[in-house]
């Protein structure tokens, strides 16, 4: 795969047009339309906030806890939306793949870009809430895009790998739904990691080796409060500190190799 060809004019046009169409179709026929991109995660947040912050009294030790929670749920929604759309992309766009010849990665990327757009809109809301909540803007905000990129690369890697397997074995979609449910509780989103640490420090450290947890905690650390526990300030072994990033690189390499090998045969296997 040579780089100039990957980004040639024809492929760029196709990517842009497919992304636009995905985004347009998502909210077709709904009265509030694009507003749902904002409303859905906000409502999710309201529910989690009532249950976990108000009822169960989580996060009393964390400053700006509501925004901290909102930030976490926003990033989590981004990850789940990105992967579930990405994994299904090849099957959903089967008609295109059977009728025209183009690099197959385009359908996966276009499906995940819709999630990126939604996330960016929601990020603006998080920042507005943060400012209302009294969070001081800081230079560390400039580091947030790095973590977002990290989370996106991980989602892309998972989408390419599982999406390619999903062409043959449609079970993947169902399995991934279950994994997402399990991961939701394994990532410190609704509960503060300090809660885990109070009963087992090792368990808390293990949870922070998950790349998703690492990225989300970094974003909270840089955007909301420097008091956030992150992989960097909590795990002390320097190899373990970079383990999440190594994991992402491994997923990406596996995904690229497998996708390249299998994508030649998508047209006949879908």
């Amino acid at each position: 795969m040579d780089i100039p060809k990957v980004f040639n004019k024809k492929n760029r046009i196709l990517l842009a047009e497919l992304t636009k169409t995905d985004f347009k179709l998502r909210y077709q026929g709904s009265v509030l339309g694009y507003l749902w991109a904002l409303l859905r995660p906000l409502m999710m947040f309201a529910i989690l906030y009532m249950v976990f912050a108000k009822l169960l009294k989580f996060g009393n030790d964390i400053p700006h806890y509501p925004v901290y929670l909102l930030c976490g749920t926003t990033m989590w929604s981004f990850f789940t939306e990105c992967t579930s759309q990405g994994i299904q992309a090849i099957v959903v766009r089967g008609d295109l793949i059977r009728k025209i010849s183009f690099p197959k990665y385009i359908v996966v990327v276009s499906a995940t870009l819709t999630a990126v757009i939604n996330m960016l809109i929601n990020l603006v809301v998080v920042i507005i809430f943060a400012l209302i909540n009294g969070v001081e803007p800081s230079w560390t905000w400039l580091l947030v895009p790095l973590s977002l990129l990290e989370l996106y690369i991980l989602s892309l890697g998972i989408s390419f790998l599982l999406g390619a397997i999903n062409v043959r074995y449609r079970d993947i979609t169902s399995i991934w739904d279950v994994i997402i449910q399990a991961l939701f509780y394994a990532v410190p989103i609704i509960y503060p990691i300090s809660m885990v640490a109070s009963s087992s420090i090792v368990a808390a450290k293990v949870l922070l080796l998950n790349p998703i947890a690492q990225a989300i905690q970094d974003i909270r650390h840089n955007l909301i409060t420097p008091e956030t526990i992150t992989t960097w300030n909590y795990v002390d072994n320097s190899f373990l500190q970079i383990l999440p990033i190594i994991l992402i690189i491994i997923v990406m390499i596996l995904a690229a190799l497998y996708f390249r090998k299998k994508s030649k045969f998508f047209a006949e296997e879908i």
């Binding site: 046009i13 196709l14 842009a16 047009e17 497919l18 169409t21 347009k24 179709l25 077709q28 026929g29 008609d95 295109l96 009728k99 025209i100």
Partner: peptide, 20 residues
């Protein structure tokens, strides 16, 4: 008409199919 989508207008479909 590769990529034609029934939920989009004729105009939008021209641009979509054109991109294909």
């Amino acid at each position: 008409g590769v990529g034609f989508n029934p939920e989009l207008t004729g105009r939008e479909n021209v641009y979509l199919n054109g991109a294909m």
